[in-house]
Design a protein around this nucleic acid. Structure first.
Lengths: 239, 239
DNA sequence: CCAAAAGTGTTCCGAATACACCCATGG
DNA sequence: CCATGGGTGTATTCGGAACACTTTTGG
């Protein structure tokens, strides 16, 4: 631990999509003497910042190390600064112990990021949990996740964030399920396809689903370059 | 100056609307020995935070003191953390001098707020400048204002923020001019009125414009309570 | 041949756009 | 009576919503 700033931290809400459910990546607290392990066992990935690093860079580095992915989508969405947020006392004691710093008040800058679970390679002691069924987490991390989800709901309406969460090859139905899960409302499949079909940056592959006991679905990929070209012409991306 | 945290600050981009122009409130730097006054003369209102205060509360207090208004609209929209942001050196030297602290790196949490210039009572050495014609400001404050404007553009599409900027009594034309100014695109006056008229929270007053050398316009007020009731039913506020 | 999900078109309605003239006031 | 901005209605187009059946595969 070199030259940490004990007043400011970065926390990342990492969203993934699996089995039709939106999930968050949580870290199990490291082992420390028993007396410190009262309180809550799970937390968001995050760290105190180093003195010389831009926060975005710091968050990106943390994420790349944790997930084995690069070019991850990352968005800063909020700041949590309540003087009492590092509670209950057992959790604060644990933080002091593990950081080796007499931290007292920490302002945390919160990011959310979107990853393809299928392509990540997560090694540490982590767990994916469904966002709609979380236990109590350390500090104010439940609240941070709620706010992250609000921000994601807002932004996924205007930007093609779904492709960050879907596997590289995906079906239209998967795409729809993702929207339904995040926005919490059912959509009409025919109307959904009607809107997706004319989008030239969603490209059908010469490949179909396999080993399903029903009609296999067409697979597609997202072409970011084509999207970038079109977005200047079109007014946005609204599904 | 009691118990400041030299690592974290709050900066406020205060928008106002006057003469058909969107403006920002800037502060002229206090007098200090000449050698420190090289660099840029204008800055955003802002301060290092105190150790025990939530950032939102801190920003609200700062604003109320500066403007003489309460219940100001305030929104946190970004964080600026580049290690090199406190440059050029003359400006950093000035900050050290005036704060009395050996600040080195400051992460700033940025807010924008919206006020009715006509009702504010601003006393300090400040100046309103049009956002589209700003000089070079201290540190990265030009960049912060650009980002604030992007955030405002985004959010004014979905929320009735215009009423925070308009005087209590306003005309439909003023309202339209405000949208045109912020969004940077002309609108059709008839279509605009058609959309505004059915909104029950925009209430005509028994009063018209006076002392204009043309047909005097109807004045309206915004009723927040009625809006709050309707927003749950309607899907939003989109002009 | 049965179960299960994929994929496909049409109609209807409301919202957004485009567009031109008369009105009330001050000077 | 003239200059200035206020205020009004209609026709058209486009996008969103509702809705049911046939197809392909594995078992």
């Amino acid at each position: 631990m070199v030259n940490l700033n004990p007043h400011v931290s970065v926390d990342c809400v990492i969203f993934g999509f699996h089995d039709g459910k939106l999930k968050v990546l949580l870290i199990e607290r490291e082992e420390v003497p028993k007396s410190y392990l009262k309180g809550h066992k799970l937390k968001l990935p995050g760290n105190l910042i180093t003195q010389s690093e831009d926060l975005d860079i710091s968050a990106i580095r943390t994420l790349e190390e944790l997930t084995g992915l690069d070019r991850i989508f990352l968005k800063q969405f909020g700041v949590f600064s309540s003087p009492g947020r590092l509670s209950p006392p057992e959790d604060l004691a644990w933080l002091r112990k593990t950081s080796g710093l007499m931290v007292d008040r920490v302002v945390t800058i919160a990011y959310y990021s979107l990853i393809k679970i299928s392509e990540s390679n997560i090694t540490e002691r982590t767990i994916w949990l469904a966002v709609d069924d979380l236990p109590d987490l350390i500090f104010d991390h439940n609240r941070i996740i709620r706010k992250a989800l609000e921000a994601l709901r807002q932004e996924i309406r205007n930007e093609p964030l779904c492709f960050e969460l879907l596997p590289k090859k995906f079906t239209i139905r998967q795409m729809q399920n993702l929207y339904e899960e995040i926005l919490g409302e059912p959509m009409d499949n025919r109307n959904f396809r009607k809107k997706v079909k004319p989008l030239e940056f969603i490209i059908p592959l010469a490949e179909k689903e396999k080993e399903v006991n029903h009609k296999p679905a067409q697979l597609y990929k997202f072409d970011k370059k084509i999207y970038e070209k079109h977005r200047k012409v079109l007014s946005g991306f609204n599904l």
